[in-house]
Amino acid sequence: MKSAIRMNSMPSKLSFGIIVTGLLAIFVLSAGRIYAVSSAQESSEGVTSFRPVHTYSIVARDSITGEIGVAVQSHWFSVGTVVTWAEAGLGAVATQSLAEISYGPLGLELMRAGKSADRALHALLRADDHPEWRQVAMIDASGQVAVHTGEKCIREAGHHVGDQYSVQANLMEKNTVWDAMAEAYENSKGDLAERMLAALEAAQKEGGDIRGKQSAAIIIVTGKSSGRSYMDRVVDLRVEDHPEPVKELKRLVQVNRAYEFMNDGDERVAMGDIKGAMDAYSKAMDLAPGNPEVQFWAAVTMFTEGNEREALKYFREVFRVDRRWVEVVRRLPEAGLLPADEKQIRKIMSVAPKW
C-alpha cells in the first residue's frame, strides 16, 4: 500500500519541476540573474519520488552572528540527506513528512534569486501536486520564516514559529512536541548549535517520533557568503544510524568545536602568535580530553616552540594510547614539522613506554 501511494503521488517533472523552473525564470530574469535558471533546471531534472521522512526539526537564525541553521532527528536512516539544506547568505530549509526533496535545492535557488522565505515556499507549494502531504520550513538570511504543515501530515503534526526560528514535527507521540521545542530553544543559552540541539533534546524528552529514533543532522552556515562554500559551513554533521542519535550528534558537535580550536591554534602558529596558539590548543584538549590526535599536534607545537616540559607530558600520554605515534614522530623532521636534530628526537622518544 505504501509503495502504491508513493508511486501515484510522486510529483511529475512536468507538474512540479518544470513549473518551478518557469517560476524561477520569471524571478531570475526580473533580478537579472539568468545563470540561476540552469541550476534550477538541473535540480528539477533530479526530482524523484518523495520519502516518508516523518520527523521533527528546527530552522533558525542567530540574531547576533547572523548564522543560519537547520537540525533534525528522525526514525529514518540518514535523515540529513533528505531534510536539511542550507547555504551561506541565503537561508536554510527543512523538508519532511512525505518529503519532496527538491524543496531544499529549489527553495535555496528561489532565495538566491532574491525571494524571501515566504515567497519561495509559496511558489513551491503552488507548483506541487500534493502540498497536503508536505511539511516544510524555510528561513532566509534576514531571519524571515515561512512554514507549511499539510493537512494530510500524519498526526500528531504541527509547528511553532518564533522570532527568527521555526520548529515543526509530524508523526509525534504527543501534540506538545513542537511547543516544547520552542520553549527549549528560547530559554537555552550558548551558540546556535547548542540552542538547536536543546530543541531536539526537548522534543525527544516530550516523546518525540512515535516510532523511535535512528538518525540526526545539523548544518550551520554563515550569514554572509564569502564565495568559498567550504569556508562558510560552520557545522555540518550527520549521525546516520545510532540508538541515541541526538546524544551522538551533541558529542560530535563538541568534537567539531575542539578541532576548530585546533585549526585556530595552527593558524596562530603560522602568524607567530604562540601564546594564542597554546590557548587555542588548551581549549581543544578541554573539549576532547584523551583525544590523542589533539594532544599530539599540540605537543608538536609546544616542543618546537621551546615548551619541552609540557610537550613531553603530552607525548607520553599519546604514546601510552598507541605506540604507532612514535613512528609518526620519526617521520616529522623530514616534513619540517619537528627539528631535524637527532638529539631532540631521542628526547621525545625517551618518554615512550618500554613495550
Rank of each mutant, 00 (worst) to 15 (best):
I101V: 13
N187V: 07
P333C: 08
L106H: 06
R195E: 05
T55P: 06
A120I: 04
A184E: 04
T222Q: 14
Q41D: 13
I58K: 00
A157L: 02
E244I: 00
S38T: 10
K343G: 08
G208D: 09
G46I: 06
P131Q: 10
A169C: 12
V93N: 01
S12V: 09
G158Q: 05
V269C: 08
R126Q: 15
N256C: 07
K13A: 03
A92V: 11
D179V: 05
R51F: 14
I348W: 02
P105G: 12
S229N: 09
F261K: 06
D279E: 15
G89L: 10
R268W: 04
A184T: 05
A141Y: 06
A127D: 11
R309Y: 07
G265E: 02
E240H: 08
H54E: 15
V93R: 00
V351D: 01
S44T: 12
E156V: 01
D286W: 08
L332E: 06
S44H: 04
T301G: 02
Y281G: 01
P292D: 09
S49L: 10
N170A: 01
I64T: 15
A198E: 03
A299N: 10
A184L: 06
G91H: 04
V239Q: 03
A335L: 14
S12N: 09
V234N: 02
W355L: 12
H54Y: 11
W85F: 09
S30E: 14
P289H: 14
I348P: 00
A198R: 03
V147Q: 04
A258E: 09
V255K: 08
V20K: 08
V326Y: 07
R119M: 11
E206S: 12
R134A: 10
S102W: 07
A127Y: 04
H130R: 11
S44F: 10
Q96Y: 11
V72E: 07
H159N: 13
G272S: 09
I18D: 14
R51C: 07
P333D: 03
S9G: 11
Y165V: 06
E194W: 00
L312Q: 04
V329K: 00
E317N: 13
V47D: 10
A25C: 09
A216P: 01
D62M: 07
V79S: 06
I139F: 02
G150Y: 03
N8C: 05
M196D: 05
S15C: 07
V235Y: 15
V253M: 02
A335W: 08
A113H: 05
G190D: 11
A182Y: 01
E183I: 15
S43A: 14
T84F: 13
A71E: 02
L90V: 13
P52N: 15
E194F: 01
V70K: 00
K213I: 12
I219D: 00
S142H: 12
A127V: 03
M349Q: 12
I218F: 12
V255W: 07
D140H: 06
E244Q: 14
R155T: 00
P289K: 14
I139Y: 01
M10T: 15
A92L: 09
A92H: 04
A340P: 01
Q254F: 03
G190A: 12
L332P: 01
M349V: 04
M10S: 14
E206F: 03
M1P: 02
L249N: 01
